[in-house]
Deep mutational scan, measured.
Amino acid sequence: RKEMTAACTPRRRIINLTSVLSLQEEINEQGHEVLREMLHNHSFVGCVNPQWALAQHQTKLYLLNTTKLSEELFYQILIYDFANFGVLRLSEPAPLFDLAMLALDSPESGWTEEDGPKEGLAEYIVEFLKKKAEMLADYFSLEIDEEGNLIGLPLLIDNYVPPLEGLPIFILRLATEVNWDEEKECFESLSKECAMFYSIRKQYISEESTLSGQQSEVPGSIPNSWKWTVEHIVYKALRSHILPPKHFTEDGNILQLANLPDLYKVFERC
């Protein structure tokens, strides 16, 4: 597991931080080997919608929660590849102030007048994250320049770009939802926020969305749709870069829909 690298990086740093090793061990302890084997050997059937997909393993048909699986995938990559990410360069710098204002204007932020003026909160978020810029760049390849612009994001899987519609809320939550006081809790909560931002979430995906850094293989055609990215990038990574937690067998994120021999018997009677 320590050699797990989802995106190509030129050289690998050895990380011996106790906090990170502890988080890696927790993933191992909570892992479910049968689910790992199923995901490793599954045959992708198709997307139901951005949140759900169908896959077959041996004779069984499964309904998989793409949102939760991708979130767990990105969390584990962030923990196992800690401080070893490439950088996704933004085509132009994104001012943190503008991103924070967009987030505060969104109902998702939960902002009320009692929280104070949005401009003041946005300025605080910019200054707060600028103070964390060195650590964010060093460990997470999340790059913020001296003017308070976001200029780079971590490359977690080759050819995958997170849904940038979720970027404003991500920046807001970096400042408000991460435990910045304790090292282990900081790395864990920061990785979880980043994983949620990178995950496939239906509120940020339309039929026209593209999450891939590449064009489709047909010359002159439109960019790959999110469905292509889910199948050929995300579920491909799920084959080798995730140890599913045991609770996925109990919380409805992986559901067995049918045993195909039983279905064949039904059709034979028709």
Score class of each variant (00 low, 15 high):
residue 216 S to L: 10
residue 177 E to P: 00
residue 270 C to H: 14
residue 111 W to T: 05
residue 259 N to F: 04
residue 147 E to D: 12
residue 121 L to V: 10
residue 101 M to K: 15
residue 130 K to T: 11
residue 98 D to I: 05
residue 102 L to C: 13
residue 229 T to P: 03
residue 267 F to P: 15
residue 82 F to I: 06
residue 179 N to T: 14
residue 40 H to V: 14
residue 34 V to R: 07
residue 155 L to Q: 12
residue 227 K to F: 04
residue 43 S to W: 04
residue 30 Q to H: 08
residue 150 L to H: 03
residue 243 L to V: 11
residue 53 A to R: 00
residue 31 G to I: 04
residue 87 V to A: 07
residue 149 N to R: 07
residue 192 K to R: 14
residue 184 K to P: 04
residue 84 N to Y: 01
residue 266 V to P: 15
residue 164 L to E: 05
residue 6 A to P: 05
residue 212 S to C: 15
residue 85 F to Q: 04
residue 183 E to Q: 05
residue 163 P to T: 05
residue 262 D to Q: 09
residue 88 L to K: 09
residue 173 R to G: 04
residue 240 S to P: 00
residue 251 D to T: 09
residue 176 T to I: 12
residue 242 I to Q: 02
residue 146 E to I: 13
residue 223 P to R: 12
residue 148 G to N: 14
residue 6 A to Q: 04
residue 42 H to L: 11
residue 39 L to Q: 00
residue 150 L to D: 01
residue 46 G to M: 08
residue 51 Q to V: 10
residue 42 H to F: 10
residue 193 E to R: 03
residue 225 S to T: 12
residue 234 V to Y: 00
residue 168 P to K: 04
residue 125 I to G: 03
residue 231 E to P: 02
residue 215 Q to W: 07
residue 131 K to G: 13
residue 1 R to K: 12
residue 14 I to G: 06
residue 175 A to F: 13
residue 60 K to G: 08
residue 86 G to E: 15
residue 228 W to I: 06
residue 253 N to G: 10
residue 108 E to R: 08
residue 10 P to G: 05
residue 162 P to S: 02
residue 57 H to F: 07
residue 213 G to Y: 15
residue 103 A to N: 00
residue 193 E to F: 05
residue 223 P to C: 11
residue 256 Q to I: 06
residue 181 D to R: 09
residue 211 L to M: 13
residue 50 P to N: 03
residue 256 Q to M: 15
residue 69 L to T: 00
residue 49 N to R: 02
residue 166 G to F: 00
residue 235 Y to N: 01
residue 115 D to Y: 06
residue 265 K to Y: 06
residue 179 N to K: 12
residue 194 C to N: 00
residue 93 P to W: 02
residue 60 K to N: 10
residue 5 T to L: 04
residue 31 G to A: 15
residue 197 F to R: 02
residue 79 I to V: 11
residue 125 I to Y: 08
residue 174 L to F: 00
residue 108 E to W: 07
residue 181 D to M: 15
residue 237 A to S: 07
residue 96 L to A: 03
residue 10 P to K: 02
residue 217 E to G: 14
residue 155 L to C: 13
residue 88 L to S: 11
residue 117 P to L: 07
residue 13 R to E: 06
residue 190 L to I: 12
residue 21 L to N: 08
residue 55 A to R: 01
residue 230 V to E: 00
residue 35 L to G: 04
residue 100 A to M: 09
residue 1 R to D: 13
residue 25 E to A: 07
residue 47 C to T: 14
residue 124 Y to F: 09
residue 170 F to H: 03
residue 131 K to T: 09
residue 149 N to P: 00
residue 210 T to C: 09
residue 162 P to D: 01
residue 261 P to K: 12
residue 221 S to I: 14
residue 40 H to W: 06
residue 242 I to V: 11
residue 222 I to C: 11
residue 53 A to V: 14
residue 217 E to Q: 08
residue 229 T to V: 12
residue 184 K to L: 12
residue 269 R to T: 11
residue 53 A to Y: 07
residue 21 L to A: 05
residue 189 S to E: 13
residue 135 M to H: 03
residue 26 E to M: 13
residue 220 G to H: 14
residue 210 T to K: 08
residue 54 L to Y: 04
residue 206 S to C: 14
residue 114 E to Y: 08
residue 98 D to W: 07
residue 250 E to Y: 07
residue 45 V to T: 04
residue 84 N to H: 03
residue 22 S to V: 15
residue 245 P to D: 02
residue 87 V to K: 09
residue 253 N to R: 06
residue 40 H to P: 01
residue 191 S to A: 12
residue 19 S to P: 05
residue 222 I to M: 13
residue 22 S to W: 10
residue 16 N to C: 08
residue 140 F to K: 02
residue 41 N to I: 04
residue 105 D to S: 13
residue 253 N to M: 13
residue 84 N to T: 04
residue 104 L to E: 02
residue 30 Q to L: 13
residue 131 K to A: 12
residue 123 E to R: 09
residue 97 F to V: 09
residue 199 S to E: 00
residue 102 L to D: 13
residue 261 P to N: 14
residue 145 D to H: 03
residue 64 L to I: 10
residue 166 G to T: 02
residue 29 E to Q: 09
residue 159 N to F: 05
residue 113 E to I: 08
residue 237 A to L: 06
residue 156 L to W: 02
residue 262 D to I: 05
residue 190 L to R: 02
residue 203 Q to W: 04
residue 248 F to W: 13
residue 238 L to E: 00
residue 237 A to W: 04
residue 19 S to G: 05
residue 160 Y to R: 00
residue 117 P to A: 07
residue 246 K to W: 09
residue 128 F to L: 12
residue 210 T to N: 09
residue 248 F to I: 05
residue 200 I to A: 03
residue 139 Y to G: 02
residue 243 L to S: 10
residue 55 A to I: 09
residue 20 V to I: 15
residue 155 L to H: 10
residue 185 E to H: 08
residue 218 V to T: 15
residue 54 L to V: 15
residue 75 Y to P: 00
residue 141 S to H: 04
residue 24 Q to A: 11
residue 37 E to T: 10
residue 136 L to P: 00
residue 241 H to E: 06
residue 33 E to A: 13
residue 186 C to A: 05
residue 269 R to G: 10
residue 33 E to Y: 08
residue 85 F to P: 03
residue 139 Y to D: 03
residue 109 S to F: 11
residue 95 P to I: 05
residue 100 A to I: 15
residue 68 K to E: 09
residue 109 S to L: 11
residue 3 E to A: 10
residue 84 N to M: 02
residue 22 S to F: 15
residue 161 V to A: 13
residue 234 V to R: 00
residue 141 S to M: 08
residue 58 Q to I: 08
residue 28 N to M: 12
residue 107 P to T: 13
residue 62 Y to C: 04
residue 249 T to I: 11
residue 153 L to M: 07
residue 145 D to M: 01
residue 3 E to W: 08
residue 229 T to Y: 03
residue 26 E to H: 11
residue 168 P to L: 01
residue 249 T to C: 10
residue 38 M to Q: 04
residue 85 F to Y: 05
residue 106 S to D: 11
residue 225 S to K: 12
residue 99 L to A: 09
